[in-house]
């Protein structure tokens, strides 16, 4: 076991733990940082449930090794609400029934945060394309699309 130290910031908090190089960022966040909001579905980059924001961009945390995140700033789904108040995206997912079982939801919410940051007033087609990297097996996606539309509206009028 050639564990090595990995330090980075998650949701504004410094973390330093030891991991084997082969440990993915997703497993490291869940097991070593005890941030289990990041979910693991397929574990090979298809489903998007493990999406987190690393240095400002949304990435699959199952397709990065924790050691590669050394020195980065990470936002996970736990970092989106402020002082117990849901973010506009989270709020919109609740209002528009953008989830049922909720397993895929952290990945969707984090992806949508990153997407709306880059494209604050997307068209419906752009929303559909942006959501294509996340799989949901419950909702049929319509509520999720509405949630993104609602979040975009709320955020632009804020």
């Amino acid at each position: 076991m050639n564990e090595q130290a990995v330090s980075f910031t998650v949701n504004g908090e410094a973390h330093r733990h030891f991991a084997e190089p082969r440990k993915t960022l997703a497993d490291f966040l869940r097991e070593d940082c005890a941030l289990t909001g990041t979910h693991l579905g397929c574990e090979h980059g298809v489903c998007g449930a493990c999406t987190v924001i690393v240095d400002g961009v949304a990435v699959r945390s199952c397709l990065m090794f924790a050691v590669q995140a050394e020195g980065t700033e990470i936002t996970t789904v736990e970092g989106l609400a402020t002082d117990g108040t849901l973010s506009p995206v989270q709020e919109a997912f609740r209002e528009e029934h953008g989830l049922q079982c909720g397993f895929c939801t952290p990945g969707f919410v984090v992806s949508v945060h990153a997407f709306l940051e880059q494209n604050p007033s997307p068209t419906r087609q752009e929303i559909v394309e942006a959501l294509s990297g996340n799989l949901c097996r419950c909702t049929g996606y319509q509520g999720i699309i509405r949630a993104v539309e609602r979040a975009a509206k709320t955020m632009s009028s804020a």
Binding site: A34, F65, V67
Partner: peptide, 14 residues
């Protein structure tokens, strides 16, 4: 610290 699950890739030197 949660109990560690078996990691998936075979070991490598980084």
């Amino acid at each position: 610290r949660l109990p560690s699950r078996p990691v998936k890739p075979a070991p490598f030197e980084y």
